[in-house]
C-alpha cells in the first residue's frame, strides 16, 4: 500500500504509531498479538480515523487485547460473553462509526453462545472477531468448547467432547459475512479484515490464534505448526478499496468480484475447488470435506450484501442519534396536549 501522505503518513496524515495502543501484556508469541498488529495496519492503510472506530470486547485474553491497539478509538471492555449486546446498543449512538468486537472461543462459544447467535440474527453492523485458541488462557489452560475431540494437554488430560465450530455456527445463524483466518497467515488475514470492515452488517471472522502457553503442541489444531502445515485457502482473496481499479492480474475466467456498499470490492481467485460464496450449503460441504481431509480451511465462506442491517431496519436518522439536540428528542407542549386529549 502506498503511503500517500509521505513520511509514513496515510491519507489522513496519520502515522501508524497513532493507531497503536498500550504496551501488550499478552504472552510473547501469542496469536492475538499478531491479530492486533494486523488490525493496526488495516485501519491505518484504509485511512480510517481512529476516532471513527468503536471497539468492544468481553472477558479473556482476546478481550484484553483491544487495549493494545487503536488507543484513540472509544472502547468498552465489558462482561464475559456479553460483548454482542453491549455493541448492539452502542452502534445506535453513532451509526457512522465502524464497530469492531473482539472475543475468544470461551467468550463466544461457551458463556456467550446465546448473544453470539442473536447478534447474527439481527445483522448488527459489527466486525466480530473470534480469537480462537481452544483453551482458557487467563485461568491456566482449561479446554474451551472449540477444543478438538481427543486433544490431550498436560494438565487437563484428554478432551472427550466434540467441538463447537464457529464458522458452522455462524452459517447456521444467517450471519451475512463468514470467514476463517489463521493468525500465522497475516497476508490473507489483512485482506479478510479489510473486506469485513467494509461489510454493512455482521461480519464473523473465526481466527485460529495459537496459545503459546497452553495449546501449541505440533499436533494440535490450534497450534502454529499444525496451522502452517495444514492451512488451505479456499481462494486467493484481495480487497480493492473504493475508487481504485482492480489491478490484480488474474485469469478472468476464474475470478469473482463482490462489490460492497461502500464501493470497495472483494476479488476472489479460485485456487482449488469451486466455491460459491453465496451458498451456505456449499460452505458446509467444504467444511465437512476439510475435516475428513484433516486440513485447516481458510477464506471467505459466505457473504450476503443485500440483507438490511439493524440500523437500516430501525430507520433511524442519518445524523448520529447522540448528536441530536434536546429539541429534536423532546416532543412539544402541543404534542403533550394531544396525548392528554387522547387519553380517556
Amino acid at each position: 500500500m502506498a503511503k500517500r501522505g509521505g513520511n509514513g503518513q496515510n491519507e489522513l496524515g496519520l502515522t501508524k504509531d497513532e493507531y497503536r495502543g498500550a504496551p501488550s501484556t499478552l504472552c510473547k508469541g501469542c496469536g492475538h498479538q499478531s491479530i492486533a498488529n494486523q488490525v493496526i495496519s488495516v485501519v491505518y492503510e484504509m485511512d480510517v480515523l481512529p476516532e471513527k472506530i468503536m471497539k468492544f470486547s468481553g472477558i479473556g485474553c482476546s478481550s484484553k487485547s483491544p487495549a493494545y491497539f487503536l488507543s484513540r478509538s472509544f472502547t468498552f471492555n465489558g462482561l464475559h460473553g456479553r460483548m454482542p449486546s453491549l455493541a448492539t446498543g452502542a452502534v445506535f449512538a453513532d451509526h457512522t462509526l465502524k464497530a469492531m468486537g473482539f472475543s475468544g472461543d470461551g467468550d463466544t462459544a461457551s458463556i456467550g453462545m446465546g448473544q453470539f447467535k442473536h447478534i447474527m440474527r439481527r445483522n448488527v453492523p459489527l466486525l466480530y472477531i473470534v480469537e480462537n485458541n481452544g483453551v482458557y488462557g487467563l485461568t491456566k489452560g482449561q479446554f474451551s468448547a472449540t477444543a478438538d475431540q481427543g486433544l490431550e494437554l498436560k494438565k487437563q488430560g484428554l478432551n472427550p467432547y466434540m467441538p463447537v465450530d464457529i464458522v458452522r455456527e455462524a452459517l447456521a445463524s444467517n450471519a451475512t459475512f463468514v470467514a476463517r483466518a489463521f493468525s500465522g497467515d497475516v497476508k490473507q488475514l489483512r485482506e479478510i479484515l479489510k473486506a469485513a470492515l467494509s461489510h454493512e452488517g455482521i461480519a464473523i471472522i473465526d481466527i485460529i490464534s495459537p496459545c503459546v502457553s497452553f495449546n501449541n503442541q505440533d499436533d494440535a489444531l490450534h497450534s502454529y505448526s499444525w496451522g502452517r502445515d495444514h492451512e488451505v485457502a479456499i481462494h486467493d482473496l484481495a480487497y480493492v478499496p473504493p475508487r481504485e481499479e482492480i489491478e490484480v492480474d488474474y485469469d478472468k475466467e476464474v475470478m469473482k468480484k463482490v462489490t460492497m456498499h461502500d464501493g470497495s470490492k472483494i476479488v476472489l481467485q479460485k485456487i482449488g475447488e469451486e466455491h460459491d460464496i453465496s451458498k451456505r450449503v456449499d460452505a458446509v460441504n467444504l467444511l465437512d470435506r476439510a475435516d475428513e481431509e484433516g486440513i485447516l480451511l481458510t477464506g471467505l465462506f459466505y457473504i450476503d450484501t443485500e440483507q438490511p442491517s439493524l440500523i437500516d431496519i430501525k430507520g433511524i436518522t442519518e445524523e448520529p442519534l447522540n448528536r441530536l439536540t434536546n429539541d429534536r428528542i423532546r416532543p412539544s407542549r402541543e404534542d403533550l396536549q394531544d396525548v392528554n386529549e387522547m387519553l380517556f
Binding site: R82, S85, L86, A87, G89, A93, G114, K314, L321, I329
Partner: peptide
Amino acid sequence: KNTFAVVQAEDELAAIGMAVGAGWG
C-alpha cells in the same frame, strides 16, 4: 426518520446489555 430504537432482546441479560451500550454511547 426515527430518533429512537426499540429492540426486543433475546433475554434480560442482553436487554440491559444493549441499554448499557447505548447509554455509554
